[in-house]
Design a protein around this nucleic acid. Structure first.
Length: 413
RNA sequence: GGGAGAAUGUCCCGAGUGGCAAAGGGGGGGGACUGUAAAUCCCCUGCUUUACGGCUUCGUAGGUUCGAGUCCUACUUCUCCCA
């Protein structure tokens, strides 16, 4: 709530990005002069980032907009070790090719939000594999390891939590924060980086980096974390029926991305407008006080703005139009997903539902029909033996719906 | 190396006296009410073209039994304690 002199911190704080900051006044002074170079690390565990990382990306965006320099750090090296956080057994090590592919998929997203180049405020992308893979264990211990106090690390919340829970805490995991701290000092030395940002869970790791920097004689380093973004209902953000909300268009279409934002809970609209769009705050304040059904207008603004940031204005407009036709006119809009089917001999609804991806098995499809959730051309299906033929085609396709929101157009092969 | 305990419905947690397709949650899906929201209520949530039918499920592999998630043996993995 305090006021800063720098645009950067003012924007971040008024939009709700700041959870903790190590030395706000010192950072503020640097930011006011445009002397902040900040990085955020992204692991290459999937071929695309998802909305969970969007807060971080937006911070880099504002950093650049306010005249400072962003660094997007690809975790090409750290991903090889694999962040072992999370106790599930799915911690399979990724192959080097996978990591490379994932890295390529992730990189594209940043160009939508940041301007890259070699100018003062141009963004830079680096991969920590560049230095981490060349590390020599003995040298590492002598140069870096001696600065880490086990006593202090054991006192860290993240570590204590694991020890208290009596769950295993591997050496690998214990080392993760050392690698991350080391990244920070390398970036500080090579690129003059002086700020690391991240989610609130990263606080301990980032602070360790700040400390290591001091011990190794870098310039003063700073830490800044964002609050954990959850939904008003308490659920984790970004999880939907179809899985994670990916940012890459080939993994989640702009239409579905738009729908994700359109379905935001009422209580989240204002917060999300601040975090995930660049709308002026006056406009946000006007929108978030809308009550009842009127709030839907604010959700459309949110969906349009967020989709436009990622996929561009045209894609956002197209998604909005498809949604309008589908939901407000009940028509089958051309923008819906399409599946080719051979209608010549007739296709059973059950099979059609499975082929269209609206049901995982015939049994599930049948249950959906029994529950009254399936419609063909907007007419409820009661008989699971119904056969779809060319006679059901309207305007070139058959509209198959599961529930209110999932629609697929069937087209003759 | 020694000792103790655990693995259940391929999303998660979790009950389970030898008769079990297996309790209960969470999550997810559908319906009602609404505003493509939340909350609430109802239904569904292993596969199989109906099924009181068939098939496949309780870490893996064998065994005992008419019958095994449940008992026995070996193995695997995980956790904790001691060294």
């Amino acid at each position: 709530m305090s006021t800063y002199t720098s645009d950067f911190l003012n924007i971040l704080s008024s939009r709700g990005y700041i959870h903790q900051c190590s030395d706000a006044a010192g950072l503020d002074a640097l930011a006011a002069k445009g002397d902040v170079t900040a990085y955020i690390g992204f692991d290459c565990t999937a071929p695309s980032l998802h909305v969970g990382s969007l807060v971080q990306i937006m911070m880099l965006y504002w950093l650049q907009q306010s005249g400072n320099k962003p660094i997007a750090l690809m975790g090409g090296g750290t991903t090889r070790v694999g962040d072992p956080t999370g106790k599930d057994e799915s911690r399979k090590l990724l192959s080097l090719e996978d990591i490379e592919n994932n890295k390529r998929g992730i990189q594209d997203v940043f160009s939508k939000f940041l301007t890259f180049g070699s100018g003062k405020t141009d963004a830079v992308m680096v991969d920590n594999a560049e230095w981490l893979t060349k590390l020599n264990y003995i040298d590492m211990l002598r140069d870096v390891g001696r600065h880490f106090s086990i006593n202090r690390m054991l006192a860290m919340d993240s570590v204590k939590l694991r020890l208290d829970r009596e769950s295993e805490f591997s050496f690998l995991e214990f080392n993760y924060m050392i690698l991350q701290s080391y990244d920070f000092t390398v970036l500080a030395q090579r690129y003059g980086c002086n700020l690391q940002m991240g989610g609130s869970d990263q606080w301990g790791n980032i602070i360790n980096g700040v400390d290591l920097g001091r011990r190794m004689g870098t310039q003063q380093l700073f830490a800044l974390t964002t609050p954990l973004i959850t939904l008003a209902s308490g659920a984790k953000m970004g999880k939907t029926a179809q899985g994670a909300v990916w940012l890459n268009a080939d993994m989640r279409s702009p239409y579905d991305y738009w729908q994700f934002w359109r379905n935001t809970e009422d209580a989240d609209v204002g917060r999300f407008l601040r975090l995930f769009t660049t709308l002026p705050l006056d406009e946000v304040k006007r929108l978030e006080v809308l009550a009842g059904a009127e709030l839907n207008e604010a959700k459309k603004v949110l969906a349009n703005a967020a989709t436009a940031l990622l996929h561009g204005d045209d894609a956002a407009a197209a998604a909005a139009e498809t949604a309008r036709k589908t939901f407000e006119e009940g028509a089958s809009a051309a923008g819906l997903p399409t599946v080719s089917v051979d209608l010549a001999g007739g296709v059973g609804v059950l099979a059609a539902l499975v082929q269209a991806g609206l049901a995982a098995s015939n049994g599930e499809a049948r249950r959906a029909i029994q529950g009254g959730g399936i419609r063909v051309n907007d007419e409820a299906v009661k008989d699971d033996k119904l056969v779809l033929t060319a006679a059901d085609v309207r305007d070139g396709s058959i509209k198959l719906s599961h529930g209110k929101k999932k629609h697929v157009l069937l087209k003759q092969q």
